[in-house]
Amino acid sequence: MSMLTCDTAEALVVREADGFLVPAELAGLEAHATGCEACRALRAANLAVKRAMALRTDAMVPSGFAPRVLACVAPWPSADWLEAVDWRRWTEWMLPVAAALLLIVGVAGTSGSRSTAANGGLSPSEPSATVSEAWTLSAETESSPATSALRQDVSSDELLATMLGTRVADSEGTGNGR
């Protein structure tokens, strides 16, 4: 019958895996583990994990780490602050903020369109349509080539060219008449 309790054995299991047990302690632990399945499993796991963890090699510190730290604690801005700024860190922090702003703009845009539509049934393209209608209305009282072009629903560039052409033609006609 073992004299060790499981609580005592637990500490010995850890120290055994770390290589700190003296022979007398080891003998006591082995005696206890022989009759205690839970402590036997605990012991096997500790030994196996300790061996596996020894395979872990240190990761290399990223280049420029120390200058970045020192720039953060410098009493005044460092001359080479641009090199010290960790842009990745800022972009990581700003990503959720940017996403939230986009969401807000999107929601505001949608509700803005809805309220405009509710106020007069106008969409963003409608003001220009209204201007076109105004041109068309005034054109109905005239009979120049420009007003004809308006009725034919030509583009604004074509309309401008037509208007200018008319004026040139008019002035030329006037000149010729003189």
Binding site: A11, V14, A48
Partner: peptide, 19 residues
């Protein structure tokens, strides 16, 4: 320190299947 020993022992036990 007793809690330390217990956490290391239990931590390694849980770590074994994960590893």
């Amino acid at each position: 320190i007793g809690t330390v020993m217990s956490r290391i022992a239990r931590g390694r036990e849980k770590l074994r299947p994960l590893l």
